[in-house]
């Protein structure tokens, strides 16, 4: 793993909606950011917004769900499920999406930038 990360402010925490996603544009790249609330605790995830199967920038508009103990986003186009921690596509071994570092500092949501 990389050592020092450059964290960049993206938006305010209250720009996020529980159990759904938003999309950030950062240096021309689209990143989907999700906030998931489970048993009172919030978890944050960030993956590439590009749906490699539907071929459109739509993943942030997908539904959140779980498959056994994996947390997934379900593509709004053709319903493939992508694991938010590993980026693997659970419905197609050949596909996966990039996963990015995300954290909350105070009231700010930040992405890890190289």
């Amino acid at each position: 793993m990389s050592e020092a990360k450059n964290w960049t402010d993206i938006c305010n925490l209250d720009d996020l909606v529980d159990n759904s996603g938003v999309c950030a544009l950062i240096s021309g790249k689209q990143v989907a950011i999700f906030k998931i609330k489970q048993q009172g605790e919030s978890h944050f995830y960030a993956i590439s917004n590009w749906d490699p199967i539907g071929k459109a920038n739509v993943l942030y508009r997908g539904l959140i769900g779980s498959v056994a103990d994996k947390t997934v986003v379900i593509s709004p186009l053709y319903k493939q499920r992508y694991c938010l921690t590993s980026g693997e596509c659970l419905d197609d071994d050949l596909q996966h999406v990039d996963v990015f570092g995300v954290r909350v500092e105070g009231s700010k949501v930040q992405l890890a930038v190289a």
């Binding site: 909606v17 529980d18 759904s20 459109a56 508009r61 997908g62 539904l63 959140i64 709004p76 186009l77």
Partner: peptide, 22 residues
């Protein structure tokens, strides 16, 4: 409304049918 937003299929969330290019 907030508690329902995350339930809807994208079509319901965005009150429109998503087309092939998003």
């Amino acid at each position: 409304e907030k508690p329902h937003v995350a339930l809807q299929d994208t079509n319901d969330t965005y009150l429109g049918n998503m087309q092939k290019n998003g």
